[in-house]
Design a protein around this nucleic acid. Structure first.
Lengths: 195, 195
DNA sequence: GTCTATATGCAGATAGAC
DNA sequence: GTCTATCTGCATATAGAC
């Protein structure tokens, strides 16, 4: 029945996630995913039009979770600036907990369809930042600034600072605090208030 | 004689640069480069062990020029903070003048050997930032901070802010000024002094 | 519906004629 | 030394048996 079909589909997606988490995109070949899921390569094409669609769906699912986590954190307690900080902290801490996967999602070389998806999600994160920065500027707790630029710059900054530790596999304990201090300065927030 | 051999080698490199500038890595196949240089594909292998070596050499040459330009700008007149700003401005302005090429060097998906080279050069830029930030902190014109983190974050910020305009092909006239303002805030420099 | 085996397409690399 | 033509390897995708 339908449930069984869906189960196979899910099994393939789960296998792809597992391989991605362990070996990055290299392990994510059709043959690899099929083997991991315990089916033949041919069967993969019963559930997905092709490799691109499978990988993109995996990517979307994983990054979607991150987006949710970040947005939930941004809705937590604290003032407007705390919310921006919460985005940075949540994003960074989650990434450092699953380094191989985070590297794959953030920076690993991928082919065009997945890269396109990556750009989309970077924009989603930028918008999350921009929304809160705009509010904070309006409220007068941050100096006037082009929110879109600040947001893009913060996304780039967080990603770049994390890529080193992520590819090395380990991060210094104060990477995240340092990143937060950078963020506060970049926003133009008064350091003393949030140190 | 030897000069003629070297000339062919240079012609191949030049062809690769041209293709990279116009079409990115897609145009940079062995067949494409050979055609552009007016030689057969087989001949490419008289001058280079393989595609990877050719492309990496092209990449190194191009990015090396950017590094030089940035370091020269950082040695110009002005105080310590001006030097960091000069790095950002020089880098951004040069990138926006050759968008397709800059995108290829900065962000376009590439295969592993070139990506490795890209990481190397991001670190070179980071070190350029870090050197000047460290000095400025010592001199007391910037607040205490982990220079390596600030440097990595700035590299990421600049790259991310540029990627949008670069892939779109056009940038707003005040992208660079906004980027400079972000940089000054992120450094912890007093805005009033450099606006 | 799932398997095995094979086809297809591409890009990098090589061999042998000239 | 350079060309044309070919080969190889890989990963995606398909066909046909069960």
């Amino acid at each position: 029945m339908q449930a069984r079909l869906d189960a196979q589909r899910e099994a393939l997606l789960a296998a792809a996630v597992a391989l991605l988490s362990e070996q990055g995109y290299a392990g994510c070949s059709v043959v690899g995913v099929a083997a991991r899921a315990g089916v033949s390569t041919g069967s993969v094409y019963r559930y997905f039009p092709g490799k691109a669609e499978l990988v993109v769906e995996v990517f979307r699912g994983l990054v979607g979770r991150e987006v949710q986590a970040v947005e939930q954190a941004a809705d937590g307690p604290g003032d407007l600036i705390d919310r921006v900080v919460a985005i940075v902290e949540t994003f960074a801490n989650r990434a450092l907990k699953a380094p191989r996967l985070a590297f794959a999602l953030l920076a690993e070389p991928v082919d065009a369809p997945v890269e396109a998806e990556r750009l989309v999600f970077r924009q989603v994160f930028q918008q999350a930042f921009a929304r809160h920065v705009t509010e904070a500027v309006k409220a007068g707790v941050l100096p006037p600034q082009e929110a879109a630029i600040t947001a893009a710059a913060l996304v780039g900054a967080v990603a770049e600072v994390l890529v080193g530790p992520l590819s090395a596999g380990v991060a210094s304990a104060d990477t995240v605090p340092n990143l937060v201090r950078f963020t506060l300065r970049a926003l133009g927030a008064d350091d003393a208030a949030h140190s």
